[in-house]
Design a protein around this nucleic acid. Structure first.
Lengths: 325, 325
DNA sequence: ATGAAAGCGCTAACAG
DNA sequence: CTGTTAGCGCTTTCAT
C-alpha cells in the first residue's frame, strides 16, 4: 500500500514526528542532515502526503472551493484563472464544484459537498442562492463570498461588477448614439437582472426617455435566449438593444440577420461581458467589458479575509454593432 | 463548534457507534426508534458529516477528480455535464481541478492535488501528460482515465472521439464537395494532432490527392490561432480547410472576411467539435460534431471499472461554410 | 440492537 | 533537535 510517514520513520530510524516536521518544512526544528535523509527516503518510497489526514487534524484545509453553474455564458474561465492565480500565491489549492444548470438541487448538493470537508473558503460564482442555500452557508462557519453577483446585503461578502452601473453605461452609450427606443434583453429575474433594470431605467429617465413595458425581456443569458428574444422585439420598434450577455447578443444578432435586418444600421446591439464571442460575431459586438480576471483575484482576497473591493470597474469596448442614428 | 457524532450520541444517550450506523443508514443494525431519535437530534443540531474523517478511515472516497485545462475551446462544459450526471447516478461526487493553460507545472500540481487525497478515480480531460505526469499517475494506484484524448496505449484507459476518423470524415466531406487542395489548421503537435493528420492524409491518399507540406498548420485550438493561421494559408491556394476546433474555424473565418475573401465560395471551412460557436459564426460552420456529453458519461463508467467504449461516434452537421466546387 | 475499543495518517503540544 | 503521546471525527470489528 501507499507509504505513510510511519514507514519513512522506520526506514530512516527517526520518529514520525520528525518526519512530519521535515515534510512540513517546519523551520529549523530539525537538523539539515536528518532533513536530507528523510526527504531522500520519502522520495525513494514514492511518498505522497495524505491530505485527508492533515485536514482532519488541522480542521482547516488549504483549499478554496469554487461553485459554478453551467451558465450558458463563457466568462467563468477568466474568473477561474484569476481565482487560481491568487489562490496559489496564498498557498491555497482550488477545487471546482459544478452546480449544474441552475438546478436548485445540484446547487444545494454542491454547497453541501463543499461544507462536508475542511475548506478555507467557498466562492460562489454567479450563483443565485435560495433560502436553503443561505441557511446552509451561514450556519457553517466557513467564510464564503459571492462572485459576479451582488445580493445587496452588507454583511455578505461579494465581488462583482456593478450591474446597475453596467446597464447604465450601456444604455447611455446607445442614447449617446442617438437611440431613443432602447430594449434590454436576456436578463434574469433575480438580483443581477433587477440591478441592470435599475441602471437601464435610470439612464432612460435621466434623458427623459420613456420605457415601454415590452422593451424589457427576460431570459437566461444564453445564445438560445437571444435567438428567441429577437422575435419578441419585432413589434416594439426599438432601434437599440442592451444584451445581458455576449451569448444573448450573438443570438439576437444572428436572428436579426436571418430576418434580413441590417446590422447595425437597422438595429444596434451593445453586449455585456466582452468575451471573445464579441469578436467572433459579425459585426463584432460593442460591449461593456467586465474584468473577470480581477473579479476572480479579488474574490479570493475577500474570502481569505483580506480587504478587497466590492465592485470591479468595467469599461466600454467599441466594436461594430452600434450605429449612430 | 460544529457538532460531531459524539455530540449527537451524548444528547441521544446512545454510543457514537450507533449514531454512525444510523447516519450511514446501515441496514437493520439499529431499531427504528433510535434511528428516528438520532436523525431528529442530528437535524436539530445542524449536523454535517465530516467527510474528511470518513475518507481517512475508509481510505477510499466517493469523489471523482476531473482535471481540465483552460483549453481555449469550450467543449468542456458538455463533458462535465455528462461526467456529473453519471457520477451522481453512481453515488460519486465530482470535483474539478484546473490545470491552467497547458502549463506543465500547474498540470503536475493538479494531479498531485488529486492524488493527495482519497479519491475513487481521476479523469483527465484533454490533458496531454508528460513523463512525470504518467509516472505519478501510474504509481498512485488510483484508477485514471483520459478523456477526449487517446494515447494509443492499450493498458491506459481512455474515452474519446476517434480523431483519426474525425479528420478522415472532415477531409472526405470536403473532397466530396469537389475540393482538391485542402488544408488542416490549428492542430497540436501531440497525440490528438498527429491522429488527425493521419486521418487527413489517409483521406487525401485514397483519392490520389497530394498533400503539400504547408497545407498543415499547427496551432493551439484557439480563436487567436485561427485568426493568425489564415494569413499563412494565403499563399497556398487551398480551397478548403479542416479546422481543428470551432474556435480555430471561427478565427479563420473572421480573418478571411476581413481580407475580403468570400465564404464559403472562395474558401470552405469544416470545423471539428460542433459546439454553439458553429451557429454564432457567420456563415454557420459545418462541423464534425463530437458527442461530448456521452464522452463524459462513458469516461465515468470506465474509470469506475465498468465497461465502456473507447471511441464515441461522431457525425457531420451540415451548415453553411462548405461550398460545392 | 448496541457499546467498547482500535485505529485511519497526520500534527502539535510537551518533554527531554 | 527529537521522541512520546494525545487526539482530529469517523467506521468497524468484536463482544454482549
Amino acid at each position: 500500500m501507499k507509504p505513510t510517514i510511519k514507514d519513512i520513520a522506520d526506514k530512516a530510524g527517526v520518529s514520525i514526528a520528525t518526519v512530519s516536521r521535515v515534510l512540513a518544512s517546519k523551520g529549523d526544528s530539525y537538523s539539515k542532515k536528518t532533513g536530507r535523509k528523510v526527504l531522500k527516503i520519502a522520495k525513494e518510497m514514492g511518498y505522497r502526503k495524505n491530505n485527508t489526514a492533515v485536514e482532519l487534524v488541522k480542521k482547516k484545509g488549504n483549499v478554496i472551493a469554487v461553485i459554478i453553474n453551467a451558465t450558458p455564458t463563457n466568462f467563468s474561465t477568466q474568473i477561474i484563472d484569476g481565482i487560481q492565480k491568487q489562490a496559489n500565491s496564498l498557498g491555497q489549492h482550488v477545487i471546482i464544484l459544478y452546480a449544474g444548470n441552475r438546478s436548485p438541487e445540484l446547487q444545494h448538493q454542491a454547497i453541501l459537498t463543499a461544507l462536508e470537508r475542511a475548506i478555507s473558503g467557498i466562492l460562489l460564482v454567479a450563483i443565485e442562492p435560495d433560502q436553503e442555500d443561505m441557511k446552509l452557508l451561514e450556519g457553517a462557519g466557513t467564510p464564503f463570498c459571492f462572485v459576479s453577483l451582488y445580493l445587496e446585503q452588507n454583511n455578505i461578502l461579494a465581488v462583482s461588477s456593478n450591474n446597475r452601473d453596467v446597464a447604465y453605461q450601456a444604455t447611455n452609450y446607445l442614447i449617446g448614439h442617438g437611440h431613443k427606443k432602447i430594449g434590454l434583453a436576456g436578463i434574469d429575474q433575480y438580483h443581477t437582472g433587477s440591478q441592470r433594470i435599475d441602471g437601464y431605467r435610470l439612464a432612460m429617465k435621466e434623458h427623459q426617455l420613456d420605457v415601454e413595458d415590452d422593451w424589457i425581456k427576460l431570459g437566461d443569458y444564453s445564445y438560445a435566449s437571444g435567438l428567441k428574444l429577437l422575435g419578441d422585439f419585432l413589434s416594439t420598434r426599438v432601434t437599440g438593444i442592451v444584451a445581458a450577455s455576449d451569448m444573448v447578443a450573438a443570438g439576437l444578432l444572428n436572428a436579426a440577420q436571418q430576418k434580413g435586418i441590417q446590422l447595425p444600421d437597422q438595429l444596434s446591439i451593445i453586449s455585456i461581458d466582452g468575451t471573445v464571442i464579441c469578436q467572433i460575431a459579425t459585426p463584432a459586438l460593442t460591449s461593456v467589458t467586465q474584468d473577470f480576471y480581477t473579479i476572480g483575484v479579488e474574490s479570493v482576497n475577500k474570502v481569505m479575509g483580506k480587504k478587497a473591493p466590492l465592485f470591479i470597474p468595467t469599461h466600454i469596448t467599441k466594436r461594430s454593432s452600434v450605429a449612430e442614428i
